[in-house]
């Protein structure tokens, strides 16, 4: 990400898995594949901590291309990415709902 203004609060840290390219989210202990498992930075102190993890991740290069992303928390407490691009990225192609994280979630819903 270009230097400059950091993403607005609240935010999460996201990247792409090195081996398979899947979208991943920093989940406190390690990285998760679902946005619902993401750790959220709600204040400046936590955001600063995330920035440090981002720098560490960049240096390590795994996962790949990390950046901070603004979310909002909807009425049910679910995380919703602020921008349409991030909403699509966190779910999968809007034209192929059988692919990407949205498909995994659907399968889970069916089996649960």
């Amino acid at each position: 990400m270009a230097a400059g203004k950091r993403a607005a609060l609240p935010l999460v840290l996201t990247a792409s898995d090195l081996l398979d390219g899947d979208v991943v989210f920093y989940a406190g202990a390690g990285w998760a594949r679902g946005l619902d498992e993401a750790a959220v930075a709600a204040d400046e102190a936590q955001a600063a901590q995330f920035e440090a993890i981002l720098a560490e991740t960049e240096a390590k290069g795994d996962p790949v291309a990390p950046y901070l992303m603004t979310v909002r928390i909807d009425a049910d407490g679910a995380l919703v990415p602020g921008h349409v691009r991030e909403r699509i990225r966190s779910r999968g192609p809007t034209i192929r709902t059988d692919l990407g994280p949205q498909a995994r979630q659907e399968r889970q819903h069916v089996s649960v």
């Binding site: 792409s16 398979d20 390219g21 899947d22 979208v23 290069g61 790949v64 291309a65 691009r85 699509i88 990225r89 999968g92 192609p93 692919l99 990407g100």
Partner: peptide, 17 residues
């Protein structure tokens, strides 16, 4: 690695490579 993978047509896109 980035320039090497690009030289072989492998990009990182929104959801995957």
């Amino acid at each position: 690695f980035l320039p090497l993978r690009l030289m072989n047509g492998l990009y990182l896109q929104l959801h995957a490579y």
